[in-house]
């Protein structure tokens, strides 16, 4: 984004977010915005807080402190009807597809339309097949999820996530567990979806190649802190050690707080 260009409108605004599980704090003072129409990739190693941040952005987890605003709506203070309206315009593709095992692939994809619209069944069927075609799953409508490979499950999950043509799409680990060719195809699909449907897309991944291919901006998390946010080139040139470690695939150089370490090891001991 150049200084001269028009200021983008912020769709998702994460402000001073702290979040965790019980006594364990996972995210520390996260400030992050997602602009309308952009693809933001959240990167970080395992345990960096990526999934927790995603849950907070989806309103599936209450922050212990701070706020998440989507379209200006504070998710913590939103009414059920406001959240429902927001969720109807939001798609989520989970890591493993998260299809219901008792329904066929086609019925899984149709589910949001049957639940949230009064569209004619003909329209629903054609919409479903359009999405299956888009995901190269044309022959899979009548199959059960257990009959699909990992990559196919992921694409079927994406088909269901975009069946309502959401304005915002969250995609958790699109490339994880996929072969390189399928992974590249999925990246291209994400780019096409954004272009044609003008979606705002938030992708959580630890796959560098995928992030560099699809991202307008990348946010790097490490140990629950937002290290930096920038364009692909800015991230590649970033001198912060934690970002460089992630890019160069170097193992983390964990600094130990001796006192805290000892306290963890001896917690509860008499």
């Amino acid at each position: 984004m150049t200084e001269n260009s028009q200021k983008p409108s912020v769709l998702i605004d994460v402000k001073d977010l702290n979040s965790g599980y019980g006594d364990r704090q996972v995210l520390y003072d996260i400030n992050l915005s997602v602009n309308d129409g952009e693809i933001l990739v959240i990167m970080g190693g395992s345990g960096s807080g990526k999934s927790t941040l995603l849950k907070n952005m989806l309103g599936l987890k209450e922050p212990s402190d701070g706020r998440v605003l989507v379209h200006g709506l504070d998710l913590s203070n939103a009414s059920q009807s406001e959240l429902l309206k927001l969720r109807r315009s939001t798609g989520v593709a989970f890591q493993g597809g998260a299809l219901l095992s008792s329904l066929s692939v086609g019925d899984n994809i149709k589910l949001p339309l049957r639940q949230h619209t009064d569209l004619d069944e003909n329209t629903i069927s054609i919409m479903t097949r359009l999405k299956l075609e888009l995901m190269s799953l044309a022959d899979c409508e009548d199959l059960m999820p257990s009959e699909l490979s990992g990559g196919m499950l992921k694409r079927a999950g994406l088909a269901r996530a975009v069946i309502m043509d959401p304005k915002i799409l969250f995609f958790d680990e699109p490339s994880a567990g996929l072969d390189p060719v399928t992974s590249v195809e999925l990246d291209q699909l994400i780019l096409k979806l954004r272009k044609a449907m003008n979606m705002t897309i938030v992708v959580v991944t630890h796959e560098l190649e995928s992030a560099f291919t699809i991202a307008d901006r990348i946010a790097v998390l490490a140990d629950g802190e937002l290290v930096t946010t920038g364009s692909v080139d800015e991230i590649k040139a970033c001198t912060d050690k934690r970002v460089a470690n992630l890019i160069n695939r170097s193992p983390r150089d964990v600094q130990i707080d001796a006192e805290k370490y000892l306290s963890r090891l001896t917690k509860g001991a008499k």
Partner: peptide, 11 residues
């Protein structure tokens, strides 16, 4: 036009 619109045209 979203995919429900496209579906209608296909039908």
């Amino acid at each position: 036009i979203d995919s429900s619109g496209m579906a209608i045209l296909v039908e």
